[in-house]
Design a protein around this nucleic acid. Structure first.
Length: 261
DNA sequence: ATGGTAGTCTTACTA
């Protein structure tokens, strides 16, 4: 079962790029971030015609997450538990049943800039809520794939120019510690696990500004976190870097994992 | 110190 994550930065602007990537990569399930539309504005019928079941958790103008899945989705829940007053659409979970049931948690973690400030406080509070939810997911002892745009650069080797990020919410020590605290519950960072001693990249995001793509000034912020039961059945994973060179690209590229499920 | 680019349904805000 091939499970992917793609921050598309606006479904209206990215419908062609997403459709082309789906045809090329043929994922069984993909979680999307930054759909930037309300549920009613999502082109559900278009993706249904391509053979995908569609679940959306949208919001007007900003944020918004979704799941496209060839296999039926069960027990879909929208929103990260822990704050009923949080109106930002950044989290969706579902169970997908192939040869066995897999719980998928798709997330768009707050950016947090500028730091310090209220946006950074929201990021850290959101990560604490995610830590609690992640612990609950591990308790199920199901294969769980928790994936999406984490807006976290875990280590200096995950940035082409780490020095440019030292005051950024994506790389501040407190951000990285919060991410590490979740990972240390028992999650495997799939991409890093395939190249544990790698010294640079692979990157998943290149800013639209300042020629970042041309200069390969990227960062790795889209992550595939596997529960122990999911890590045990890991076959392969990857980053579809070539998508960034396509027509009207997102600033992120897809990341994917293939598991025996 | 600043700017650089892209998306949304704003004429600002987010990233």
């Amino acid at each position: 079962m091939k499970i992917a994550s793609f921050n598309i930065n606006g479904i209206k602007a990215r419908i062609n790029a997403l459709t082309e990537w789906l045809a090329a990569a043929n994922p069984d399930l993909v979680v999307l971030q930054e759909i930037k539309t309300i549920d009613e504005g999502f082109p559900t019928d278009h993706f249904a015609d391509l053979g995908y079941n569609v679940e959306t958790h949208g919001q007007k103008g900003f944020n918004g997450v979704a799941i496209l899945s060839k296999l039926p989705l069960e027990d879909v829940t929208c929103g990260l538990p822990g704050d009923d007053a949080d109106e930002q659409a950044r989290y969706i979970e579902a169970t997908v049943v192939g040869e066995r049931a897999v719980r998928v948690a798709g997330l768009y973690l707050p950016n947090g800039n500028p730091a310090p400030g209220p946006k950074y406080d929201y990021k850290l509070a959101w990560m604490e809520r995610l830590r609690l939810r992640a612990a609950e997911l591990l308790k199920t002892e199901m294969p769980v794939v928790m994936l999406g745009d984490f807006n976290i650069i875990p280590e200096p080797r995950d940035a082409a120019e780490p020095g440019e990020w030292v005051k950024d919410a994506l790389f501040l020590p407190e951000s990285r510690a919060a991410f590490r605290r979740i990972a240390a519950q028992g999650w495997t960072d799939a991409i890093r696990s395939r190249d544990p001693f790698g010294t640079r990249g692979p990157f998943t995001f290149w800013d639209f500004q300042a020629g970042a793509w041309r200069r390969d000034n990227g960062i790795r912020i889209d992550h595939l976190m596997l529960s122990p039961q999911a890590a045990d059945i890991l076959i392969e994973c990857g980053v579809d870097k070539e998508v960034r060179a396509g027509e009207k690209p997102s600033d992120h590229v897809p990341v994917w994992v293939d598991i025996a499920a």
